[in-house]
Amino acid sequence: MADNKATSKAQEFKALSKKDQQRKIGDLILNNAMYIIIAIAIIFITVKQPKFISLSSIVNIISLTAAKLPIALGIGGCIVLTGTDISAGRVVGLAACISASLLTTVFKVFPNMTSAMPIPVVLLIVLGVGAAVGFVNGFSVAKFKLHPFIVTLSTQLITYGIILMYLMNGVNNGQTLSGLTDSYRSLITGTLFTIGGVAIPRYVLYAVILTAVMWVIWNKTTFGKNMFAVGSNEEAANVSGVNVARTIILVFMLAGVMYGITGFFDGARIASANANTGLNYECDAIAACVIGGVSFVGGIGRISGIVVGVLLLQIIFAGLNFLSVDPNMLYIIKGLIILVACAIDMRKYLVRK
C-alpha cells in the first residue's frame, strides 16, 4: 500500500514541469528546514564528540525526554485550540514543591507532621492542584473570551506567588526542600531495567503509558475529536453541536493534570524542589510541540509529533552540553528554535490557504 502511494507520488512529480518540480523541492526543503538543521547539528556534534552516541548518553537523552514529555503532551492540547499555556512551568514547580514537602523525612513546611503522607494521596493532591489551575485557565478563556496568553500569564504569576508563600510556611523560610523518602524516589527513579550496565529509570515507563493514554484521548474519543474541531473552527464546531466551552475547559484541565504529573516526577528526579523548579519548562514544551508539527493555527497536531519534538530538542540540548556551550547560550538557541519553527508553521498554513 505504501509502495503504491510512493509510486503514485513519484509519477505525479515526474508529470510536473521542471519549474514546478523545482518549486516543489524548494517547498519540501523549507517545510522541513527545522528537521534538516537539527539533523546537521546532530551529525556535527557526533563528529566532534563521538561519545555523544555512547549508550550512557543515549539513555540519558531518553530519560530527559521521558521527564519532559508529560508537560509537552499537556501543552500540545492548548496549542491545538490555537492557544498556549505559559503557566505550565510554574504549575510544575508548585506540584514538585507540594510533593517534596509531603514526601520527606524532614518536615520544614509542616513541622507538626511526623511521617510522610501516602504516595497515592500526594499524587492525587498534585493532580487536583494542576486540574484546578487548568480549570481557571480554561474557564477564563471559554467563558470570558480572554486570550490564553493573558490568562496563563496571570495564573503564572499567581502560581509563582503561591509557591513563594508555600515555601515560607513552617520553619522552611523559603529554602530548598530535600530529604525525600526512599519510597518516593524509588517509585520514580528506581531502575526499570538495565542495558549494558546502564540503568533505565522507572519514569520512562510512566511516560510511555502517559503517551499511550494521551494518544487514545486525542484519537479515539469524542472529546479528542471535539478538541480538534474547536481548534479548526470554533464557530463551526458550535453549530455542529460541540459544547465549545466545556471542551476548552477540559483541554486546559487535562493539561494541568499533566503538569502535576511532571512536577511529581521532577520532585523525585531532581531529589529536591525550590521556587525555581519548573522555570521555563513551558518554553521547552512549546518548542517541542511546534517542532513536532502541532500548529498554532489550530486543529493540527499528533501525539507522535510531540514525542519526536521533545526527543529532538533533548538531543540538541544534550549535544550542546557535550560541546561545552555556555548554558546562557541555550536561552538564545531555544528562542531561535521557537521563532524558526513558528515561521515554518505559518508558512505551511499560508501555502495551504
Rank of each mutant, 00 (worst) to 15 (best):
M117H: 00
A132M: 09
K145W: 03
S115D: 13
I119V: 15
G138R: 08
F110H: 04
P148K: 07
N137C: 12
L123H: 01
M117F: 10
N137W: 03
V133S: 04
N112I: 14
F135S: 07
F110V: 08
N137A: 10
K145N: 15
V136N: 04
A131F: 03
A132H: 03
P148Y: 10
N112V: 11
K143Q: 13
L124R: 00
N137D: 14
F139H: 05
V133W: 09
V129F: 10
K108E: 11
K108R: 08
L124I: 11
V141Y: 00
T152Q: 14
A131E: 03
I150A: 11
I119W: 05
G128S: 01
F110G: 00
H147Q: 15
G128K: 05
V121R: 05
A142Y: 08
L124F: 13
F139D: 03
F144P: 01
P111T: 13
V133C: 02
K108S: 12
M113D: 09
F107N: 04
N112G: 00
F135C: 09
V121E: 06
L146S: 12
F110S: 09
T114H: 09
L123P: 01
S140A: 14
P111Q: 12
G138V: 08
S115R: 07
G138M: 04
V136K: 00
P120I: 11
I119Y: 05
S140R: 00
F107W: 07
V121S: 10
H147P: 06
P120Y: 10
K143C: 06
F149N: 11
V122K: 07
S140T: 15
N112M: 13
P118Y: 05
V151P: 04
H147V: 15
M113Q: 10
V122H: 02
V129E: 04
V126S: 09
T114P: 08
F107P: 04
T152Y: 13
V151M: 11
V126F: 06
M117N: 01
P111G: 08
V129T: 14
V133I: 15
N137Q: 04
V136S: 04
P111D: 09
I125W: 03
A131M: 15
G138A: 12
P120N: 08
S115F: 11
A142K: 05
F135T: 06
T152S: 15
F135N: 08
V133E: 02
H147S: 15
V122T: 13
N112T: 14
T114A: 06
I119Q: 12
I125K: 05
P111Y: 05
V133Q: 07
F107L: 01
V141Q: 03
A132Q: 00
P118E: 08
V136M: 09
T114C: 01
F149P: 07
G134P: 12
V141M: 00
